[in-house]
Nucleic acid binder design. Structure first.
Length: 473
RNA sequence: GGCCCGGUGGUCGAGUGGUUAGGCAGCGGACUGCAAAUCCGUCUACGUCGGUUCAAUUCCGGCCCGGGCCUCCA
């Protein structure tokens, strides 16, 4: 079976064939670093991390180039810094650091390239100048704007008119426009490539404006410049959230293709929203849950599994119940792992069925079924060889999904930040006391101790090899 | 208004033109001093109205409902 991916350009699953048969290049739109990410923001980073892992497995780790940008120049950043009375650079550096913490906790591998917008200004200016030279952009009142009608009249490639990705035509957009059109726009659909900057805002010397002066880039041009710099004029996969299809990705295509005269990306992938209360999770709606806050209550792997239990293109209703379920499911898997010590990920093969499911447009929910199957086998089987194989499979699928990276011991000793903490020495001594009571058939006392530990978030399990304990999630 | 995407059993959630998804919860049982964990059994659905077909939850069309984009947004 070969990899098939849903392409937003055609709204169909297509066989994935990279431009260069031996090397794959993918780009995922990264965060604008003005605030910590919420679980909805995290979804694309996790699902496309699974794609990254799958591609690395198939093409070899060194043959997959993955770029994920950091947008560190933006009006939201400027406003937030002003509100908080802090330096813009301090805000972006700090938010970038916490972003890295959050995605690492979610088990995401670092991308090959992580360009910052402020480190790519020269490349943006170069593209803007080329667009002006080719007649696709114009200067007005210190701004440089992309002229949508120019692309309609002179498509850079056959049929590559504006609206290719979002299936919107210019007239629909103008008719449905909900905001006032800036007076300097020649056409209501035109969008900003470069805008003037005031002395109190970040800016870079530019040839534009009368007289020429400091300015800063529009949002869309960043990704066009960063992807071209690291992945080339045409690359394989461009991914992000559903809400980026329009205008962001549509505009990226317009800029990049008019500038380069080549297709930008061959496969466009978009993940569905996380919802809360039946509505899209968004800062503007006010129904967000920050990753940082959730990590106080649940291990990162539980968040990751929760995200992967739903297919990436479907909407996902976020609930704490769902997270608890994911945590309990992982408890089950770690129990299976605990039965066979010393098995390495390389000892097992990923079951063919799990690969097949992932190759079918990242069907993670179906792949997780294999995880459950292997765990069940590992828990029941007594034949050492089958047992090893089952555990090997479990770890191998887990590795592909970015799960089961912990040791069972560490996993079961994890406790929420909010929980009362009782130290391990105390736990052990109470278990010994209970054991003595049980030996003396004083079950009332034994149960009292067990209840006491339960109140402190410690659950006991009496087994043939003695009593073990774990912290309740 | 235009354009997209969905509606699956108590719940979450895959998938398929004719054969069991799976998980969780529930119920019954085994195990246990009692639990916990584990195991066995059990619960059978595809919004609605038509059409195509020998056969549709699966394909086509209408309708209803929900979500999204058209403005910043993962």
């Amino acid at each position: 079976m070969t990899l098939r991916l849903h392409n937003t350009l055609t709204r169909q699953k297509e066989a994935f064939v990279p431009l260069d048969p031996a090397n794959v290049r993918m780009y995922v739109c990264g965060p604008t670093v003005y605030d910590r990410i919420h679980i909805g923001n995290a979804r694309p980073f996790v699902v496309f991390d699974v794609l990254f892992r799958l591609l690395r497995r198939q093409y070899g780790a060194e043959h997959v180039k993955y770029a994920r940008n950091i947008t560190d120049i933006d009006d939201k950043i400027n406003n937030r810094a002003k509100e908080r009375g802090i330096d813009i650079a301090a805000l972006t550096v700090d938010t970038t650091r916490t972003f890295h913490e959050d995605v690492a906790a979610l088990g995401c591998l670092p991308p090959t390239f992580e360009p910052r917008a402020t480190g790519t200004i020269a490349e943006m200016q170069e593209m803007i100048a080329a667009l002006i030279a080719k007649g696709y952009a114009y200067e007005a009142q210190g701004h440089v704007l992309f002229h949508v009608p120019a692309m309609m009249e002179r498509p850079p490639l056959p049929k590559h008119v504006y609206g290719l990705l979002s299936k919107k035509n210019r007239d629909d957009l103008v008719a449905g426009a909900r905001i006032d059109v800036a007076p300097y726009k020649r056409d209501p659909a035109d969008f900003v490539l470069w805008k003037p900057s005031t002395p109190d805002l970040p800016g870079w010397e530019s040839p534009w404006g009368t007289p020429p002066g400091r300015g800063r880039p529009g949002w869309h041009i960043e990704c066009s410049a960063m992807s071209r710099k690291h992945l080339g004029e045409t690359f394989d996969i461009h991914a992000g959230g559903l809400d980026l299809i329009f205008p962001h990705h549509e505009n990226e295509i317009a800029q990049s293709e008019c500038c380069n005269g080549k297709p930008m990306a061959r496969y466009w992938m978009h993940n569905g929203f996380i919802e809360r209360g039946g509505e899209k999770m968004a800062k503007s709606v006010g129904n967000i849950d920050r990753v940082r806050d959730l990590l106080d209550e649940f291990p990162g792997e539980a968040l990751r599994l929760m995200l992967l239990k739903t297919h990436y293109r479907s909407p996902l209703e976020f609930t704490k119940e769902g997270l608890k379920e994911a945590k309990a499911q992982l408890d089950h898997y770690y129990r299976a792992l605990a039965r066979v010590p010393g098995v390495q990920p390389s000892d097992g093969a990923v079951p063919i069925s799990a690969i097949g499911h992932l190759e079918d447009d990242l069907n993670t929910p179906a792949a997780i079924t294999s995880l459950h199957h292997s765990a069940g086998l590992a828990l029941q089987e007594n034949n050492p060889e089958i047992l090893q194989g089952a555990k090997g499979s479990l770890v191998a699928i887990g590795g592909l999904l970015g799960l089961l990276n912990s040791s069972p011991d560490a996993w079961f000793r994890w406790s929420p930040k909010t929980a009362a903490s009782i130290d391990e020495a105390k736990i052990t001594s109470l278990i010994d006391a209970r054991l003595a009571a049980r030996k003396a058939k004083n079950f009332k006392e034994a149960d009292r101790i067990r209840d006491e530990l339960a109140r402190q978030g410690v659950i006991l399990e009496d087994g043939p090899k003695g009593t073990t304990w774990r912290r309740a999630g």
